[in-house]
Design a protein around this nucleic acid. Structure first.
Ligand SMILES: [Mn+2]
Ligand SMILES: [Mn+2]
Ligand SMILES: [Zn+2]
Ligand SMILES: [Zn+2]
Lengths: 149, 149
DNA sequence: CCTTTGTTGCGACTGTGTCTCAATTGCAAT
DNA sequence: ATTGCAATTGAGACACAGTCGCAACAAAGG
């Protein structure tokens, strides 16, 4: 279980599904994309590269990639579900600039630990979590300062 | 600025908007509803009570209530935006059971503080944040245990 | 009373995401 | 290699939350 292809294949086989050429291409493309992407961005990218894969197939494949543990659903940007790779990346949370859209990733062990404690207190078995902090990034703040001075 | 009516009215006036009868009714209904609700639930409730308020008006009013600081957009449950009151309630985060849908609210000061630190490190000015932990609640876990024994 | 500006309801529209279905493919057993 | 069969695909229709355009309406001020 070292490469992403193997991992995806194993997942599919275990569920009686097939590692089709379409799924192979989608897998490749997902991992050549920038970190945060959504279904239609992926579809567009494939379309431009003349890989004839239907929109339905793209939409159908993403949940499989999530289930197999290769990608994860992250933020919802303006009503679109956004994904990012987790194979080879470790978990992190996000700061999202509501002015320029910049996404800053961070990881804070203490917060992660405290979440575990909260779950224990409530006898809750966590599967995943998402922490998103929305506000203004440093660039947007300094630009705002320059203007007002 | 004590009652929610005053707060909403102040917000509206300040923006040159009006505290219309429809908005008054919507405000009342929002605060008589259970904590987490979405736009169409609110519309249905009003409809059943024979308050003739159009769907568009409901959808147009919710962002105003958010802007005025009376409610907040929380989780997105199955592609629907979900809101909850914050006037008279303090901020908290959520444990969401992916089996039964139960929502458990919690507040952890340490996590809140650590988030502030993270923001400071990145020169990020937070406006709001959302932490949602998805998993299995105590009830669903104990039911699963009973079955397997 | 008249004008201005915001508001409402209605229904048409948009955009994500899902589903149906006939045709095709992959795969394993003959 | 051939067959049988479930899984898969593409195309387009569909579902549905949310938005928009517009004409009629209401509040407020002169
Ligand atoms: Mn990320
Ligand atoms: Mn809550
Ligand atoms: Zn920014
Ligand atoms: Zn539960």
């Amino acid at each position: 279980m070292s490469t992403k292809e193997e991992k995806f294949n194993n997942y599919l086989r275990a569920k009686g599904l097939k590692f089709t050429p379409e799924r192979k291409i989608i897998l490749q493309e997902v991992f050549s994309l920038r970190k945060h992407f959504n279904a239609d961005q992926l579809f567009e990218k494939l379309h431009k590269k003349n890989r004839q894969i239907s929109r339905a197939t793209v939409y159908r494949s993403l949940p499989l990639l999530v289930e197999s543990g290769l990608i994860v659903e992250t933020l919802r940007c303006q009503s679109k579900v956004s994904y990012e790779q987790i194979f080879g990346h470790k978990h992190h949370d996000h700061l999202v600039c509501i002015k320029c859209g910049r996404i800053i990733e961070f990881r804070n062990e203490k917060i992660e630990k405290l979440q575990e404690e909260v779950c224990k207190e409530h006898n809750f078995k966590a599967v995943e979590h998402r922490l998103g902090i929305r506000g203004y990034c440093s660039r947007c703040l300094s630009r705002a300062n320059k203007k007002s001075s």
